[in-house]
């Protein structure tokens, strides 16, 4: 009996959580189309979310591109197919690794920061203070972060693509003696516009998820410092899982057609 009660309670809690997230998302989307729009705050958030994430995204994609080139070279070596390094690195980075790794890195950095900031504002009554000053916290705090992350992520993913391919190029030409011009030619030959655009479309969705999970968990946090800590952890975990799940769904949809 106890087990059934526990399962039932967990299921109800999960359903309630989904319901709250859905309502929060609807409120946030409605706030996005309702004036006023705080353009200055959106710009500030683009700097925080996009510009300041650039180094971490660049380093991650450079080393991933390099590691991918090594794996493909030694894998291809067994079938005398080392020449596929350039094309596979380009496709792997632009279609999957660029947007997903950028998404996961930004989720760890930005989602946590948003949840901590909004969570602290919640527990110190700063969000209540906004309401009493006739300012809608949804418009002032959530909308700028949502819009900024949705704009920033495809730009970051584009940089991740370029730097990831460059990582592969550096390893291939410096460690394995590939001809630089030939490597670039093979990369451009095999790369279509669709490969890049599919990655950027996915990155746009990841940007929305990252900001949404950060804002939702921060906004709903309660219970002092412990509550803020919990909100931060939940934001990163839920954003990361949702990014991977959304990536699978979007990849299926984009490439099955």
């Amino acid at each position: 009996m106890f087990i059934i009660t526990s399962i039932g309670r967990a299921f109800l809690n999960f359903a309630a959580q989904i319901g709250r997230l859905f309502i929060f998302t609807m409120h946030a989307l409605y706030a996005c189309v309702r004036p006023p729009l705080y353009i200055g705050l959106i710009g500030k958030q683009i700097i925080h979310i996009g510009y300041y994430s650039l180094p971490v995204v660049a380093l991650t994609s450079f080393f991933t591109g390099g590691a991918l080139a090594i794996q493909i070279y030694y894998g291809g070596n067994q079938f005398n197919s080392e020449s596929i390094v350039a094309s596979i690195v380009a496709l792997g980075i632009t279609r999957e690794l660029g947007p997903v790794l950028a998404g996961l890195m930004v989720a760890g950095r930005v989602s946590a920061a948003i949840a901590a900031e909004l969570g602290t504002m919640r527990v110190t009554e700063q969000i209540d203070a906004l309401t009493t000053l006739s300012t809608d916290p949804m418009k002032y705090l959530v909308v700028p972060r949502l819009i900024a992350a949705t704009i920033s992520m495809p730009i970051l993913a584009f940089f991740a693509d370029i730097i990831g391919v460059m990582g592969g190029f550096v390893v291939a030409t410096q460690s394995f003696g590939f001809n630089a011009a030939l490597y670039i030619q093979r990369t451009t030959d095999f790369l279509d516009f669709d490969d890049i655009s599919s990655g950027l479309i996915k990155a746009t969705a990841f940007g929305f998820i990252i900001a949404l999970m950060g804002c939702y968990n921060g906004y709903q946090s309660a219970g002092g410092a412990q509550g803020v800590g919990r909100a931060t952890t939940n934001a990163v975990v839920s954003a990361s899982i949702l990014i991977l799940a959304t990536n699978y769904i979007m990849t299926s949809l984009l490439f099955s057609s």
Partner: peptide, 20 residues
């Protein structure tokens, strides 16, 4: 509510100043 809140000034227990 917005109209009424614009007429209300509130001092919170811990001041609730915007720290950013």
């Amino acid at each position: 509510r917005h109209k009424i809140n614009s007429r209300i000034g509130m001092l919170f227990q811990h001041s609730a100043l915007f720290d950013s």
